[in-house]
Computed example of a mutant assay.
Amino acid sequence: MIYRSLSLTALALVAALFTSCGNTGPNLISKSSIGSGRESFSIAPASSVTVAAAAGKPRDKHSMPVYAFADRTRIVRTTAYTCSEDDHLIYGNKNATGTTLRYTDRVRSAAADWSFYPVGTTFRIKGLPYLYVVDDYGSALLGTGTIDIYKPSKDIMNQWGTRTVEMTVVQWGSMTRSAELLSKRTNYDHCKKMLANIVRQRPDLVTMAKL
């Protein structure tokens, strides 16, 4: 009976690893909160000024506006992901920079096409208190302004779903750092294409890109 109890405990721990990803650092969201599978999203609607400014923009494949880097406040399509999804299991709780995905009460990770939002880009979503940092990417994001918001479990990921939000870029990340990382991963088609788009915008990076 003792052996069986220990086995059940071990199985529970393994299951937890596949339903909720580990995080390190200060100000972690409590395990009880994550375990509830619920999160509060008080997202404010986009302002009329932001909506009007988006009207004349070109569109991506999701019919969302494509912005110039000068446009810091914008309307974007967001999705959600977690590290226990099948296509992320091999990476565990690591992002594309090799550091730990963040999910604290102040800072959270996000993924994007790095030629749209270079690595290190920080932004806020209207109505939410967190600062999001682009430290990841995904092949499904290629060629779009969609931002994938990291969540610690599938339940919370599904709760977010797909949402159109108003966001403001607090600080742009580094095209140079993006090119440096992507140049080492050109055997992946989406990385090669992101890198090519970065070089089109920043021809001075062509040597680093080794295209």
Rank of each mutant, 00 (worst) to 15 (best):
T162C: 05
E166T: 04
A52W: 13
W160Q: 06
P58V: 14
K210H: 13
K151F: 11
Y130W: 15
A179P: 01
L141E: 00
G22A: 13
G173K: 02
F41T: 03
R163I: 03
T79A: 05
N187I: 12
V14D: 05
T100L: 09
M208S: 13
M175F: 15
I34H: 02
G25W: 00
D155F: 02
L142Y: 15
K61H: 02
I156W: 01
A140I: 11
T78W: 07
C191D: 07
A112H: 09
Y150L: 09
G22M: 04
V51R: 13
K31C: 06
A70Y: 08
M208V: 14
A96P: 11
G127P: 02
G120L: 09
I75M: 05
A140P: 02
S84L: 03
A54H: 12
V107C: 08
D105E: 10
K126V: 06
L6W: 09
T73Q: 11
Q171A: 15
L195F: 13
I147N: 01
I125R: 00
P152S: 05
P58W: 14
H62D: 00
A68Q: 09
S5N: 11
T164W: 10
P152N: 03
I75E: 01
R177K: 14
A46E: 02
V169N: 05
T24A: 11
T144S: 12
K94G: 05
L101M: 14
A10C: 04
E39R: 07
Y130K: 13
K184Q: 13
D135Y: 06
P45A: 07
D71E: 07
L211T: 12
P45Q: 07
D204F: 14
L128Q: 05
K151G: 02
V206G: 08
W172Q: 00
W114G: 00
Y103T: 15
S5Y: 14
A110V: 03
K154Y: 02
M157L: 04
S139T: 14
F69Q: 03
T176P: 01
S48M: 08
S33Y: 01
Y3C: 01
G92R: 07
N197V: 14
Y103G: 10
L211C: 09
P152C: 10
Q171V: 15
S20Q: 06
A16S: 04
T78R: 05
P118D: 07
N23T: 15
D148H: 08
I75K: 06
A52G: 06
G138R: 00
L205H: 12
A209R: 08
V76Q: 03
Y67T: 03
D105S: 11
S183E: 05
Y130V: 02
V119N: 03
G145C: 11
R77W: 08
T164P: 00
